[in-house]
Amino acid sequence: MARKKTDLPTKVCPSCGRPFTWRSRWRRNWESVVYCSERCRRSKPKTT
């Protein structure tokens, strides 16, 4: 049974501040995923 996208867990990227949802490629290490993309991972976190 497929899950709806609204049922998937989400996190907020500390670099861009946007929310991102769980992806199947992050299945094994979702707890350690911090950034939404490689570009955000390489850039400095936004300071507010």
Score class of each variant (00 low, 15 high):
Arg23Ser: 10
Ala2Phe: 13
Arg41His: 12
Glu38Ala: 09
Lys44Ala: 10
Thr21Trp: 08
Thr47Ala: 08
Cys40Gln: 01
Arg25Lys: 15
Trp22Ala: 04
Cys16Ile: 06
Arg3Ser: 15
Thr10Ser: 12
Thr10Gly: 08
Val34Thr: 10
Arg23Asp: 04
Thr10Ala: 14
Glu38Pro: 02
Arg27Glu: 06
Val34Asp: 03
Trp22Tyr: 15
Lys11Leu: 13
Pro9Gly: 06
Ser24Tyr: 09
Arg42Lys: 13
Asn29Pro: 04
Phe20Gly: 00
Lys4Glu: 05
Lys11Gln: 08
Thr10Trp: 07
Thr48Trp: 11
Trp26Thr: 01
Ala2Thr: 14
Pro14Gly: 03
Arg27Gln: 10
Cys16Arg: 00
Ser24Gln: 06
Ala2Ser: 10
Thr47Ser: 06
Arg25Cys: 11
Arg41Ser: 09
Ser43Pro: 05
Trp22Arg: 02
Thr48Pro: 02
Cys40His: 03
Ser32Asp: 14
Gly17Phe: 06
Lys4Gly: 12
Thr47Leu: 08
Glu38Gly: 09
Lys11Glu: 02
Arg18Asp: 07
Pro19Val: 09
Trp26Tyr: 11
Leu8Gln: 05
Tyr35Gln: 02
Leu8Gly: 07
Trp30Thr: 14
Ser37Asn: 09
Pro19Ile: 07
Thr47Gln: 11
Ser37Val: 09
Glu38Trp: 08
Phe20Cys: 04
Trp22Gln: 01
Arg23Phe: 10
Ser32Gly: 10
Gly17Val: 07
Arg25Leu: 11
Phe20Thr: 00
Ser15Thr: 15
Thr10Lys: 11
Lys4His: 13
Asn29Val: 14
Val33Ala: 02
Asn29Leu: 13
Arg3Phe: 15
Arg27Tyr: 10
Met1Phe: 14
Ala2Lys: 14
Thr6Gly: 08
Lys46Pro: 01
Trp22Lys: 03
Lys11Val: 12
Arg39His: 11
Met1Gln: 11
Trp30Ile: 15
Arg42Thr: 11
Trp22Asn: 00
Cys16Trp: 02
Pro19Arg: 03
Pro19Leu: 08
Met1Thr: 13
Glu31Cys: 10
Thr47Arg: 09
Arg41Gly: 05
Ser15Gln: 03
Pro9Thr: 07
Tyr35Ala: 04
Arg23Gly: 08
Ser24Trp: 06
Pro45Arg: 08
Arg39Ile: 11
Ser24Leu: 08
Cys16Gly: 03
Ser32Met: 10
Lys46Trp: 13
Phe20Arg: 00
Pro45Thr: 12
Arg39Gly: 08
Ser37Met: 07
Arg18Pro: 01
Arg25Trp: 06
Lys46Val: 14
Arg42Met: 10
Val33Phe: 03
Lys46Leu: 12
Arg18His: 09
Ser15Asp: 00
Arg39Val: 12
Gly17Ser: 04
Phe20Leu: 06
Gly17His: 05
Pro14Ile: 04
Leu8Trp: 05
Glu38Asn: 11
Ser43Arg: 13
Cys16Leu: 06
Lys5Gln: 09
Arg42Phe: 12
Arg27Asp: 09
Pro45Ala: 05
Thr21Lys: 14
Trp22Thr: 01
Arg41Phe: 11
Cys40Pro: 01
